[in-house]
Measured scan of single mutants.
Amino acid sequence: NQASVVANTLIPINTALTLVMMRSEVVTPVGIPAEDIPRLVSMTVNRAVPLGTTLMPDMVKGYA
């Protein structure tokens, strides 16, 4: 099973992502692959992402 990116904290809308905000976890449904974490750093989220939420491609500006 592939690990996905999961919010390690509440990420407010329009926040630039940092490494400490994200962790990898095997979850269903599958979200952004964990190997993309380095690429996500400094990208911003377009909605509030609660703790434990899987990051989906449409949640990160410029990812999809």
Results as ranks from 00 to 15, higher is better:
1 N>E: 15
1 N>G: 11
2 Q>C: 11
2 Q>T: 12
2 Q>P: 15
3 A>M: 09
3 A>T: 09
3 A>S: 13
4 S>C: 04
5 V>S: 03
5 V>N: 01
5 V>A: 12
5 V>K: 02
5 V>Q: 01
7 A>V: 08
7 A>C: 04
7 A>R: 02
8 N>D: 12
8 N>W: 04
8 N>K: 11
8 N>C: 07
9 T>S: 10
9 T>H: 15
10 L>G: 11
10 L>H: 14
11 I>Y: 00
11 I>D: 01
11 I>Q: 01
12 P>H: 12
12 P>Y: 07
12 P>V: 15
13 I>P: 10
13 I>V: 14
15 T>A: 08
15 T>N: 04
15 T>Y: 11
18 T>M: 09
19 L>H: 10
20 V>H: 12
20 V>L: 15
21 M>G: 03
21 M>Y: 06
21 M>V: 04
21 M>P: 00
22 M>A: 00
22 M>Y: 02
23 R>C: 04
23 R>D: 03
23 R>N: 05
23 R>L: 04
23 R>T: 06
24 S>K: 14
24 S>Q: 13
24 S>V: 13
25 E>C: 06
25 E>Y: 08
25 E>S: 11
26 V>F: 09
27 V>Q: 04
27 V>E: 02
28 T>V: 14
28 T>S: 14
29 P>H: 04
29 P>E: 06
30 V>H: 10
30 V>S: 13
30 V>F: 12
30 V>C: 06
32 I>S: 01
33 P>L: 08
33 P>C: 07
33 P>A: 10
33 P>N: 09
34 A>K: 07
34 A>G: 12
35 E>A: 08
36 D>Y: 09
37 I>E: 02
38 P>V: 11
38 P>Y: 09
38 P>S: 10
38 P>R: 09
38 P>K: 11
39 R>N: 05
39 R>V: 07
39 R>M: 09
40 L>E: 00
42 S>C: 15
42 S>I: 03
43 M>Y: 09
43 M>K: 08
43 M>I: 03
43 M>E: 04
45 V>R: 00
45 V>Q: 01
46 N>Y: 11
46 N>I: 10
46 N>V: 10
47 R>Q: 12
47 R>P: 03
48 A>Y: 12
48 A>P: 14
49 V>A: 08
49 V>K: 01
49 V>P: 01
49 V>E: 01
49 V>H: 02
49 V>D: 01
49 V>S: 02
50 P>Y: 10
50 P>I: 07
50 P>G: 13
50 P>A: 11
51 L>S: 12
51 L>D: 08
51 L>G: 11
52 G>Y: 05
52 G>P: 00
52 G>L: 04
52 G>A: 09
52 G>R: 05
53 T>L: 13
53 T>D: 14
53 T>P: 01
53 T>N: 14
53 T>S: 14
54 T>I: 06
54 T>P: 07
54 T>E: 01
55 L>K: 00
55 L>A: 01
55 L>D: 02
55 L>W: 02
56 M>S: 08
58 D>H: 14
58 D>T: 10
58 D>G: 09
59 M>W: 09
59 M>G: 03
60 V>Y: 01
61 K>M: 14
61 K>N: 14
61 K>A: 15
61 K>L: 09
62 G>F: 07
62 G>E: 08
63 Y>V: 04
63 Y>T: 03
64 A>H: 15
64 A>Y: 04
64 A>E: 07
